[in-house]
Nucleic acid binder design. Structure first.
Length: 259
DNA sequence: ATGTCGGGGAAGCCCCGA
């Protein structure tokens, strides 16, 4: 079974590439982030033609997540139970589903904007709600993983130049402690292979030639429980998908499970 | 080869978010 996560930065803008990639990669389950469209505008029909069902949590121009699967789609949960609000709303940043033998969350963790910003505190609260939401599945026998754009680089090796990130979000001890909280809950970081260079970056800013200069970050993560990580045969970043016109600023992370 | 992109409201540019 091939399972993947990809921040597509607008499913509308990315649809031709998304459909082509689903076919060429043979992905069974894809966790999508930043759909940037209302659920009513979600391309259910085009995905169904390729054999995928979809569980969607999306409200409009910002955020939006989905799980698409051709391995079954059951027990959908939309949003983090008891999740925090930002400016009075629970932003659409999480959706869970069981896809055949595996249960997944697709998550788009709040960016945080700046250290100390209201959105940064929201980010930390959001992580705490996530930790509580996944505790039971993390401890269970069934393969389980939380896949998505975490907006946190787990270590200094996960950014192209740690000195550039001093004092910025994505690398602070509090954000990394939130990841440690997930590990304490029984989840482990499934680190993918890079297909080029040494570090498995998953995101390169559109600005200032980030991708050609490999000024990247590893912020799209797969955190799996022991039954999940035991089944991992391979994991890699499909950086080919970051190339060329019409690319997202994130590349898919692909995990092959022997299930 | 590549020095940003995407959405939306408004209006043919500007703002926001990343």
């Amino acid at each position: 079974m091939r399972i993947a996560t990809w921040n597509v930065n607008s499913i509308t803008a990315r649809l031709p590439r998304l459909l082509a990639w689903l076919e060429s990669s043979g992905t069974d389950v894809l966790c999508i982030q930043e759909t940037k469209c209302a659920a009513e505008q979600f391309p259910y029909d085009q995905l169904r033609e390729l054999g995928y069902e979809a569980a969607v949590n999306a409200t409009g121009r910002w955020n939006g997540v989905a799980v698409i699967s051709k391995a079954g789609l059951e027990d959908v949960v939309t949003g983090l139970p008891g999740g925090p609000e930002y400016e009075g709303v629970q932003e659409p940043r999480a959706v869970a589903a069981t896809c055949g033998p595996v249960r997944v969350w697709s998550v788009y963790v709040p960016n945080g904007r700046e250290v100390g910003h209201d959105h940064y505190h929201y980010k930390l609260q959001w992580f705490e709600a996530l930790r509580q939401a996944v505790a039971e599945d993390a401890a269970a026998e069934r393969p389980f993983a939380v896949l998505g754009d975490y907006n946190v680089a787990p270590t200094d090796d996960d950014v192209w130049d740690p000195t550039v990130f001093q004092g910025l979000t994505h690398v602070t001890p509090a954000e990394r402690a939130a990841l440690a909280g997930l590990r304490d809950a029984g989840l482990a970081d499934v680190v993918p292979r890079p297909l080029k260079y040494d570090q498995p970056f998953t995101y390169w800013d559109y600005r200032e030639l980030g991708f050609p200069k490999n000024k990247g970050m590893r912020i799209d993560l797969v955190y799996g429980n022991a039954p999940f990580t035991k089944a991992v045969g391979d994991a890699y970043v499909d950086r080919e998908e970051r190339k060329g016109k019409g690319a997202s600023d994130h590349a898919p992370v692909v995990v092959d499970l022997e299930l």
